[in-house]
């Protein structure tokens, strides 16, 4: 059993959008759509006592995925390693899952007319390596890691972060988004406000 997930260290992220573009190029995706969107959260507060950070959001491979519930054809499935994947043969491109996703992580590819989202690029990632978004990240902020068997660097990251581990919060109850966000270094007032976008991980 493996639990693949992306760890994103928000203390590192510099908002350069390299992950977004690497992903688009790797998937020769039509322009104008994105599998990873780098949001800017903030700045909150009043100048110069402010807080902000960048937040790359991709498919969260939720424990209870709303997209899966919304899918009328059964094209959206959860596979044995917990990833939420789309079978393009079964997808009719209706877009219900796009509506259902609280994180805006899905889109309907206007060329292929099927829904698509981040699948951790398992096919494009060399054995023991990192997917294109992580490999290209200028800040080294993204890592693909198996939570059940984390590599040494990821374990150190998770350990060092301590309490400062977060998952995305959604209005639709506890759907169990999977990406782990780390954020320790926020010296400015307003951290509480920033953290409102997250829920503490229970792990």
């Amino acid at each position: 059993m493996s639990r693949q997930t992306l760890i994103v260290d928000l203390d590192r992220c510099i908002g350069c959008h390299s992950c977004t573009v690497a992903c688009l190029v790797a998937h020769t995706a039509p322009a104008g759509i994105r599998r990873i969107v780098v949001h800017k959260i903030g700045p909150f507060g009043s100048f110069p006592e402010l807080a902000m950070h960048y937040l790359p959001v991709m498919c969260q491979h939720c424990r209870k995925p709303p997209c899966l519930e919304a899918c009328p054809t059964g094209a959206t499935r959860k596979n044995e390693d917990g990833r939420v994947l789309i079978d393009p043969d079964d997808c009719n491109g209706c877009g219900d899952c796009v509506e259902a996703c609280p994180f805006g992580a899905r889109y309907v590819n206007p060329e292929r007319l099927v829904a698509e989202s981040c699948d951790y690029c398992v096919d494009l990632t060399p054995e023991g390596g990192q997917p294109p978004c992580a490999a290209t990240c200028a800040a080294g902020a993204i890592r693909l890691c198996d939570l059940d068997e984390p590599d040494p660097v990821s374990s150190r990251w998770l350990k060092d972060a301590g309490e400062s581990r977060f998952r995305l919060a959604s209005d639709g109850g506890d759907i169990g988004p999977r990406s782990v966000y780390l954020m320790k270094r926020q010296p400015w007032a307003g951290r509480e406000k920033i953290s409102a976008a997250f829920q503490k991980t229970g792990e």
Partner: peptide, 25 residues
């Protein structure tokens, strides 16, 4: 050319920014 990626054994250590990544387009 179908895609580009950063060179791991140079100063950019495998990283490449949007300007370089999209140069293939």
């Amino acid at each position: 050319v179908v895609r580009v990626e950063g060179e791991p054994f140079f100063r950019n250590m495998g990283a490449l920014c949007p300007k370089g990544l999209a140069s293939v387009a």
